[in-house]
Design a protein around this nucleic acid. Structure first.
Lengths: 237, 237
DNA sequence: ACCACAACTTAGTAGCTACTAACTTCTATG
DNA sequence: CATAGAAGTTAGTAGCTACTAAGTTGTGGT
């Protein structure tokens, strides 16, 4: 069941005197999961990164040794202040690179995450800042996600997802998860993208699919998908 | 004397099912040295990559196992046909990336090699081809080096270097080694760049410095530097 | 022709990352 | 509140890359 060896092998850290890309990925994963006060669980990190839980235990010890995470044995890990800073810089890199690839090199919205995932570990800060400057210092990436500043400030506002909306509510799409190109293509096909307006027309019981009206057309969307599209509810109705 | 650990550690190969960045660097190094019929010597590879000769022996065995190089024990390594193809694609990536960074993101001519060195292992073929397209499929990088085609064709013409010119000869600068930003800055300061015209005004005996006239100004240049600037001699004097 | 020295290889070590298998801890359920 | 099963950890293995130290090979100079 486990896929074939996923890590072809080994290669040095990309930027002077720094973390390996692997370690960076863990920090990002922990950041992305650790938004609620709870520490990130070992199994959850493993699932997100597609590796075995045992590997996560090992890496957490290393990251802990480096002062980047604080591990609570048998409970999970939390980023330290330093670790959080590293994660935010990485996310900044990722989102700027995504933005650049989409707007300057015509990359497909749905596929750009994968490319950015690799480049974020190889690009120098100078390159990233030049890209940011070329784009006029954007504050959001193409999926609507806020770009942390180089001082590590981000909009961490918790948004509602479509799954949280009541029937009849209208909302503006703010952002969506970028981690799955299939998913993004699916959304794009419906016209669901940042800035679009959606209305919850109906909702089947027992966490059933949501019926959405987008640009006058009705679509049935599963809860899983609905939960990954974040919106701001409109005041009226 | 040996510098501190140069390889912080380890990270996976960047593009699907492929070589690690390390292995790729060896292939490039061997290609760059193996231009003359002789196999690339272990010590020479080690020196070029800045690693210990023993490490090279090990890697050559691995590359040999992968069918990318052919090793003659105690003599050196030569690329196989496959290995040469990989090296050329890498060089293509490198030079396209350099070109893109310089012309589209305002990178300094002298510093771009380092950035490209990292990105060439992380960028997908799609990204590289999009960059190439954005630049109108350039055939040379900013240092005048020819860019291999995606079919692996390159101009491998051997050029004379300034060190090969006779006193009084005039030549057009075609390209120069890109591996040393100090060196490139030095050249830039003299006005020596691809397309510039230089004249050998004098040459000190015993491999002494060459006196060069560039844009009407005289400069003294050591043989080492002169040997790394490639030119096409002008017909008449 | 020999030998000293340079060039190269082998052996052993280490760090990073990931794996599987086996064991420990935690917790929710009966 | 005892315990089964989930969650997590440890132990042992493996691949990659690099290192040092020590041994081997090859060759140029006398």
């Amino acid at each position: 069941m486990t896929a074939a060896r996923r890590t072809p092998p080994t290669a040095p850290a990309s930027r002077a005197g720094e973390l390996t890309g692997q370690a960076e990925d863990y920090l990002k994963a922990i950041y992305e999961m650790g938004q609620g006060g709870e520490p990130a669980a070992t199994n959850a990190i493993a699932a997100l990164l597609g590796i075995a839980p045992a590997s996560v235990s090992g890496m957490l010890q290393r990251l802990s040794r480096l002062g980047l995470v604080q591990v609570e044995r048998y409970r999970g890990a939390r980023l330290t202040h330093t670790g959080r800073g590293v994660a935010l810089q990485l996310i900044r890199r990722h989102r700027i690179i995504e933005s650049y690839l989409v707007t300057r090199l015509g990359f497909d919205w749905a596929m750009v995450d994968e490319e950015a995932e690799r480049l974020e570990h190889a690009a120098s800060t100078e390159l990233v800042e030049r890209m940011a400057a070329a784009l006029g210092h954007p504050t959001e990436d193409p999926h609507g996600a806020p770009i942390p500043t180089s001082d590590g400030l981000v909009d961490e506002r918790r948004l509602q997802s479509i799954a949280d909306l009541a029937v009849g509510q209208t909302a503006r799409v703010v952002r969506m998860s970028d981690r799955d190109s299939e998913f993004l293509r699916y959304l794009a096909a419906m016209g669901v993208r940042p800035g679009a307006t959606v209305k919850v027309a109906a909702r089947a019981p027992f966490d059933g699919p949501v019926t959405l009206t987008v640009r006058g057309k009705a679509h049935q969307v599963g809860v899983a998908a609905a939960g990954r599209v974040y919106v701001e509810a409109r005041a009226g109705k």
